[in-house]
Write a protein that binds this DNA or RNA. Sequence first.
DNA 1: AAGTCGGGGGG
DNA 2: CCCCCAGACTT
Length: 381
Amino acid sequence: MSKTLINTFSKKLLTWHAASGRSGLPWQGNRDPYAVWVSEIMLQQTQVATVLERYPRFMKRFPTVKKLAAADIDEVLAEWAGLGYYSRARNLHACAKQVMHDFSGKFPHDPLLLEQLKGIGRSTAGAIAAFAFHERAPILDANVKRILARLFAIEGAVQDKAVNDRLWKLAQDLLPNQPKDMPVYTQALMDFGATWCTARKPVCISADKKCPFAKDCQANLSNQVLALPQKTVKAKSPEFDCDMLLIRSGNFVLLQKRPSKAIWGGLWSLPESPWRPRSEKGHQTAHGSKELLAITLPGENIADLAKSIRGLKSGNRIKHVFTHRRLWMQIWEANASKALAFFSPNLKWVPLAQLGRYGLPQPIKILLQGLSLVRGDDLKN
DNA sequence: AAGTCGGGGGG
DNA sequence: CCCCCAGACTT
């Protein structure tokens, strides 16, 4: 039934791209596998507008896979701070080491080998192979899933295995025959999904532009475009409270390195209490230093720290929204002596002027800026 | 198959 | 307020 479209899709898409594709993005037209790889990782679940500012900075700081592999993970996380999903930065660093040690510093061409590297899944492997090496490997990101679900009127949630398998098969079958077309074709797919076949306002609805697939698209023909791909119901995100210590000593502030494999993993932040589920009936805030004595950090107890601090005062209360969690952070402020004994390597007095060298969670970075503890410039580099 | 990972853009 | 995004990894 869709045989015609299977055979004509890539050519039509390439024609569309020549007229209406995006251009001028900093990572486009670059066939350096390292540059391609960094852009693909940075763009995972992150919009182009955000990456636009951060990508050139990252490439300037770490121009080659060799330099990235040789860097300290804290430097990489500091450069990544604010982009979110910090496992991407940890995996990026680990992958750079893999490429240096297992592949003599050169990315493999085979998408199956690329997929074995840290942080590279099937879709990202396909993108790197197509952009950097002209391999006939498909991608299946959110754009492509949406395009294919509509073109072929595929019912069911895209995360369902059977549906996902079918989408991958289609993505493979639609590839252009000529390997030389792979970079532009892959870019065209992303461009078409991001700018024309969008989730909420595809051009076939607004009707000021003419979709080249209007007569091929099963969803369009059956007036189901906005219903595909099928959405799944998401649970409401749970809410939590926690306390954070903002302890200063002169021009120093006390930071805690967060455990990896958790939220804000590997970043430096303020010493933090365990999270408490937010109850319906209020009493969400810890009142007074009594409860603060019970503050523990993941994997360590800092009751001694809390006991040693005099004059804790409640400061800002910050609400922060994650993908599936909401967190209220109560800040407790005090001055203390730097002579306080800390035996944990996860606690560190940091000069305010050097905060920019540390990867801080975005709300903490904003907090410190808002309190004018540091000039904005100190946090930008 | 479902949960876990951030943060910002835009309706 | 909501949904969405050049996903991968863990359980």
